[in-house]
Amino acid sequence: MSYQIDEQKIFNSGHAACPGCSEALAIRFIINTLGSDAIAVVPPSCIAIISGPQPLSSMRIPVYQTTLEASAASAAGIKRALLSKGNDHTNVVAIAGDGGTYDIGFQALSAAAERNEDIIYICLDNEGYMNTGSQKSSATPSRAYTTSTPAGKLTPKKNMAAIMAAHNIPYMATATTGYPDDLARKVARAMKIKGGLRFIVVLTPCLTGWGIPDNAGPKVSRLAVESGVFPLYEVENGQSYTLNYGPKGLPVADYVTRQKRYRHLSAEDIEFIQKEVDQNWERLQVKF
């Protein structure tokens, strides 16, 4: 098997992401699929760092850096401005981290989804405030270490995919960097469905925050899928579910033991996570 991905050269080399950064890899397939007729909106995050130190840019499209809580609102505003100028073709995409999506930008996003704004919103989810040195967000999963959950997080990850699907938006998808063709296809699909909010949450392992080697991002992201931690699926109009890559029966231990953020786990902790993952999958499975 080999990948065939149609890329436009919008994302530049020379950006400031860490060596092996999965977020940069995700941005590559997002931006290069969106093409030149697009405007990006980015809140404070690693994405803002990667998009370029002023006055240079790594993206050959206009990028607007907004405030942490306002990505969806800013994107919606830009889209409406374009429409009022008679431009109905340019895609406006907000690319935000999990902090800017699950926590701080949540109100603006939910409101934009409720108004069904004609934008694409992509969350690069690395399960914490990694840009500021790894604090927990509501995307941090159970038992994971962050500097603000030193003994492991006690509550589970917020299910953003389910929340966004429940807004009955035209398109909601989960993706990850270990499946680049799937990610690029979902971005292309989101572009095609116009006239409403399209949301993609992309699991992007953070090498430093998760404690994995520089070369392991894609591999760990695939383990997340194959162990059932992060199934890849799509939902159209809040009701039509399609599974792309589901669990392959791999124990969750194969996933967590590769990451230093889980190295304090006991066998019982792993068993606890396994149960949680199994339950989530059971709940999701019935929808396909």
């Binding site: 080399s13 020379g14 950006h15 370029g52 130190p53 002023q54 006055p55 240079l56 840019s57 790594s58």
Partner: peptide, 9 residues
């Protein structure tokens, strides 16, 4: 605001 691309880095 932007005067060039990162690929000069």
């Amino acid at each position: 605001w932007t005067t060039g691309w990162t690929d000069i880095l």
